[in-house]
Simulated scan of single mutants.
Amino acid sequence: MHISIQQFMEIGIKKIEKVVESFINDDQMNIGEFVLELGKPLQELQREIIAETIEGIDEVYRKSAYRTSHYVVERARVPNSFTSTCGEIKYKRTYFKSKETGEFIFLADKACGITKNMRKSEDVVIEAIKHVVDTSYRISGEHATHTEDIISKQAVMKEVHSLEIPALIPFVKKKRQVKVLYINADEDHVSLQFNNKKGDLKVGENGYKSNTIEPRLACILRMLRKKAKEVKEID
């Protein structure tokens, strides 16, 4: 982290000063553009600190006495990258082999929670899901980071489909008795892409996939006694 901060003091500060100077001298640059341009050197600093931290953890493992007794270095300075909300993080780490099991592993990645084939960090997933509530998968992917990096709509869809949403069971302290309940029950037809996993739909004798379910829908409405009486009189 010290190297990143030192580089920022030498280079990053100059970039910020240049942005400030441009804003003062350029009549066409508005305050919004000024804010966005100021954020770029800071995002660059974030990326450098994150990369330097991961590489620092890797260096600790390489020099560790525990590591030398349990793991051997298989390959050094193996590059990796993933997308974060501050942009793409690029770093290098060491590939180790266990003396006991023969397992190959990136110890720094494991310590940081970076899994195999991980292309985006959790903060990006959170931003994408936050936006997908009100927008499409494509637009959510475009707003998943604070930079120009874009997450594909397929990746956003995969994260949404992997969510496990627990059923909310309301807690009732005291049950109330009412004289009138209005129950509206019906059914609907819903087309499925799959039941539990892709490709598990059965094909019927007619050659068509059985991909339709009929969920039962019910709405229960409790009305005040006076209101219920008025409805009854109208009927």
Score class of each variant (00 low, 15 high):
213 I>K: 02
167 A>D: 15
152 S>V: 10
154 Q>M: 11
172 V>H: 01
162 S>F: 02
206 N>L: 00
184 N>T: 11
174 K>H: 13
145 T>L: 02
201 L>W: 00
134 D>A: 12
210 S>T: 14
188 D>T: 15
191 S>D: 14
148 E>G: 12
134 D>T: 14
184 N>C: 09
189 H>T: 15
166 P>V: 06
136 S>I: 00
157 M>H: 08
214 E>Y: 12
197 K>S: 10
166 P>T: 01
203 V>L: 09
147 T>K: 02
187 E>M: 13
135 T>V: 06
120 K>E: 07
130 K>D: 03
167 A>S: 13
182 Y>K: 09
167 A>Q: 14
148 E>A: 12
160 V>E: 02
139 I>T: 12
156 V>Y: 01
170 P>T: 09
180 V>H: 14
142 E>T: 05
115 T>L: 08
133 V>N: 09
164 E>R: 04
189 H>I: 15
152 S>F: 07
124 V>W: 08
137 Y>C: 02
215 P>M: 00
179 K>C: 03
188 D>N: 11
118 M>D: 11
194 F>S: 08
132 V>N: 12
203 V>F: 06
131 H>L: 10
176 R>I: 09
193 Q>T: 12
119 R>Q: 07
177 Q>I: 13
209 K>A: 15
175 K>V: 03
121 S>N: 10
206 N>R: 01
207 G>Y: 01
213 I>G: 02
177 Q>E: 13
122 E>H: 11
188 D>G: 12
112 C>V: 09
147 T>D: 07
172 V>S: 06
129 I>A: 00
204 G>L: 05
143 H>Q: 11
192 L>G: 05
126 I>S: 11
184 N>R: 10
147 T>C: 05
175 K>N: 06
193 Q>W: 04
206 N>S: 04
212 T>K: 10
144 A>I: 00
214 E>K: 15
144 A>N: 03
139 I>P: 10
140 S>H: 01
143 H>W: 09
199 G>A: 02
176 R>W: 05
193 Q>K: 09
170 P>R: 08
137 Y>W: 07
182 Y>D: 10
181 L>N: 12
142 E>C: 06
125 V>N: 00
146 H>A: 13
119 R>N: 06
135 T>A: 01
174 K>S: 07
119 R>C: 06
157 M>C: 03
146 H>Y: 14
149 D>P: 10
172 V>E: 01
189 H>S: 14
169 I>D: 14
207 G>I: 06
178 V>K: 08
191 S>K: 15
120 K>P: 09
146 H>K: 13
124 V>K: 03
150 I>E: 13
147 T>V: 04
116 K>I: 08
128 A>T: 00
194 F>A: 05
112 C>L: 09
126 I>E: 13
196 N>G: 06
153 K>P: 04
181 L>T: 13
127 E>P: 04
172 V>R: 01
169 I>E: 13
139 I>V: 14
155 A>V: 05
157 M>I: 03
193 Q>F: 10
115 T>Q: 12
205 E>M: 07
115 T>F: 08
203 V>P: 03
112 C>M: 14
129 I>Y: 03
150 I>D: 09
180 V>P: 06
114 I>G: 06
186 D>N: 12
178 V>S: 08
215 P>L: 01
153 K>A: 12
145 T>H: 00
131 H>W: 11
185 A>Q: 04
